[in-house]
Deep mutational scan, measured.
Amino acid sequence: HNLTITQGKLFFHYNPKLCLSEIHKMEEVSGTKGRQERNDIALKTNGDQASCENELLKFSYIRTSFDKILLRWEPYWPPDFRDLLGFMLFYKEAPYQNVTEFDGQDACGSNSWTVVDIDPPLRSNDPKSQNHPGWLMRGLKPWTQYAIFVKTLVTFSDERRTYGAKSDIIYVQTDATNPSVPLDPISVSNSSSQIILKWKPPSDPNGNITHYLVFWERQAEDSELFELDYCLKGLKLPSRTWSPPFESEDSQKHNQSEYEDSAGECCSCPKTDSQILKELEESSFRKTFEDYLHNVVFVPRKTSSGTGAEDPRPSRKRRSLGDVGNVTVAVPTVAAFPNTSSTSVPTSPEEHRPFEKVVNKESLVISGLRHFTGYRIELQACNQDTPEERCSVAAYVSARTMPEAKADDIVGPVTHEIFENNVVHLMWQEPKEPNGLIVLYEVSYRRYGDEELHLCVSRKHFALERGCRLRGLSPGNYSVRIRATSLAGNGSWTEPTYFYVTDYLDVPSNIA
């Protein structure tokens, strides 16, 4: 807008934040220059609390790290170098490059900038070799853009010569660093050979998330399962459950009422301010606690030095998902009996873990797994792929695949051998790939016309006998059925096997 004052003059007093240069501009645009008398524009009460600059400061050096910015700028000295009290560095987070010096300023003089007072450097006698002032900004957020400017702080001049310097606002972004852990990993099994893994992005990506790394490792069953005799009275049979499938998407929606109208769909109840505040506090606490764990609990591995020492970490090797089922080394339970199943799973520490690289999504279907087997899954978020990966501390989750139908069934015939004193040795093959492992066998036998009897055969007993022995049988026709019990439950009964026990007292003698 054009402003013209045809008559009258300007009068400025007691404006401590208004620089004289701005008042002189007002004289020019209003056409009143030359009308004012000496005392109409006070030299001592206008701009006496402001830094009124008329020179431009330029930054000469900028260096960044993930949490620091090192700045240096060209030296500046007023005509009387004693008038320079120091520099004021202003900075704040700036997602967009549209910041002005006066953003967030209120009537009390406060604003949204963080201000650092910096002492002037030592003055050199040689004007050509003056030290460049600077400042190291610490405690910054990774991968965050900051708006920065600097200006001088000078003393009051009796001659009211307006001098000083100020830089333009520059924008500097800190470097990326390792992201925080992925949030809320959930693993479920939808079949006997697959596990579905879902997660949420890290709360602090500290860069642009480029991919996720998912490692999985087959877990050995508890050692007590191999040692305890679950045929003993009072000892509860062990059981394991597989990871249940995901709930429906509708039930997972946030901010939804727990109660549904019987007449149909209901609208979600909005969260109160107290609920939102509580969630923010919980989120802040979780982030602080995660940072504490990362800094205190997890110790970084030592990389190899120039002395030739090897990095103890196993090298990563990509495998196809079809090879995942046989990740671990199978060892027989008892070496003397080769027909026992290889369900003991000690994992070799030198073995390469299978892994998958996930790009542009937060889910993965891990296939080719062994049925009813526990897996430990390790999830890392990465925001750099080359020249070397920059990934987060791992988040861990466990899951067990679903049982395989008929995996616990005894394959092959049940054979028998009759000894003296009416002892019958029953023999059968253990299931080759049971659900988890076989903890015991149930032997059901009966003599024709009598009630059915049951015998429990422990895992250890089966390994020693290759089956079991029935003792003290009365003469007669017998039928026997056997079924295995694994961590997933009972298998199917075998087809009945028949044998006849004679009275050993009636056996004919070869003595003449």
Rank of each mutant, 00 (worst) to 15 (best):
N422Y: 10
R370I: 14
N422M: 06
S344P: 07
S474N: 09
E420S: 04
L487K: 04
V358K: 12
S398V: 12
L277N: 14
H454F: 00
H211A: 09
F215S: 10
S509F: 12
S305K: 14
F355R: 05
H461N: 06
E451L: 07
K233V: 15
E362R: 11
G306D: 14
V439L: 10
I377Y: 09
V331H: 15
G325P: 06
V457C: 12
S257N: 06
V324Q: 12
P270I: 07
E465V: 14
N326L: 15
G234Q: 08
G476K: 00
S344V: 10
F337A: 02
P496K: 15
E388W: 05
N435E: 01
N383G: 05
S248E: 05
R370S: 14
P270F: 11
E217G: 12
K287W: 15
A399F: 06
L379T: 04
S243K: 03
Q275C: 08
T502K: 06
C269E: 08
F337R: 13
G489T: 02
N255T: 12
C266D: 13
E465T: 11
E279Q: 06
L453C: 05
L505M: 04
G436S: 03
H425R: 10
T485W: 09
H371C: 12
G322L: 13
D323T: 14
G472K: 14
E388V: 09
V331L: 10
R318C: 12
S486N: 01
S315E: 12
G322R: 07
D503A: 04
P413G: 15
G368F: 08
Y375L: 09
G368P: 13
Y504Q: 14
D506Q: 15
G436V: 13
P413H: 15
R316F: 15
P314L: 06
D323G: 09
D323F: 13
Y445R: 03
L228P: 08
E362H: 11
I482H: 01
D222K: 11
S274R: 12
V359D: 01
G412W: 04
R481M: 09
E281D: 09
V423G: 15
V480I: 14
Q252C: 13
E465W: 06
G489Y: 11
K406H: 08
S283R: 14
H416F: 06
N510R: 15
F337S: 06
V324R: 13
C231E: 03
L470V: 13
T343W: 12
S243P: 11
P508V: 11
S268L: 11
G449C: 05
D450Q: 13
V345N: 06
V457G: 01
P431W: 00
K287A: 05
T241C: 11
N421G: 03
E420L: 06
V457Q: 06
K460M: 09
E290K: 06
P403H: 03
S363T: 11
K253S: 09
F499N: 00
V457H: 03
R483T: 01
V365P: 10
T241D: 05
